[in-house]
Amino acid sequence: MGAVKKLKKPYVHSRHLVDLEVVETASTIHNPDGTSYTVEPGDVLSVNEFGEKNLVPENHLPYYFKVEKLADTNFYDRMAKGYEDMGQINLEEANVGHNANNRAEMLTAQLLAGKNNL
Rank of each mutant, 00 (worst) to 15 (best):
E21Y: 03
Y76W: 13
K5S: 10
L91A: 15
K69N: 08
T108E: 09
N101C: 08
E93K: 05
Y83P: 00
L107T: 02
K115E: 15
Y83K: 14
N101L: 08
P41R: 11
R103D: 07
K53P: 00
Y37I: 04
D43R: 02
K6R: 14
K69S: 01
F50K: 06
Y76H: 09
I89S: 12
E93Y: 01
H98P: 03
A3C: 01
M79L: 11
K6P: 04
Q110F: 12
K53F: 02
K9H: 09
E84G: 11
H30P: 05
K115G: 11
L107W: 06
A104N: 10
K81P: 07
E92Q: 15
M79F: 13
R103S: 08
D19I: 05
S36A: 12
S36I: 04
S36K: 12
V4S: 07
V12F: 00
E105D: 13
V4E: 03
N74P: 02
P32C: 12
K6Y: 00
V23Q: 01
Q110E: 14
P10V: 02
L107S: 05
V23I: 08
K66W: 01
H30N: 15
E92R: 15
N99E: 14
N116K: 13
V96L: 15
V22A: 04
A94D: 13
E49M: 06
V67A: 13
K8A: 03
F65D: 10
D19M: 11
D19R: 14
N74F: 11
L55M: 05
E52A: 03
Y76S: 07
T38Q: 08
V22Y: 02
N31G: 05
P57F: 01
N101P: 02
N116V: 02
L112F: 01
Y11T: 06
G51N: 06
K8D: 11
E58I: 05
H98S: 11
E21H: 10
G51M: 01
I29L: 02
G2D: 15
L111G: 14
E84D: 12
G42M: 08
P10S: 04
V56S: 10
A109Y: 10
V22M: 13
K69Y: 02
T108F: 09
L91S: 13
E92W: 09
L107C: 10
E40M: 10
Y64N: 09
G34M: 05
K6F: 06
E93T: 08
V47R: 05
Y76N: 07
K66Q: 03
H16D: 11
M86F: 09
T108K: 12
S14A: 14
A71T: 13
K9I: 04
L61I: 14
D19K: 11
R15M: 03
N31V: 04
F65S: 10
R78P: 00
D33I: 04
G34K: 08
G87P: 06
N102H: 08
V56L: 03
K9Y: 01
E93H: 04
T108A: 13
V44I: 15
P32R: 08
A104H: 12
D85A: 14
E84Q: 13
M79I: 13
N117S: 14
L45E: 05
N102W: 03
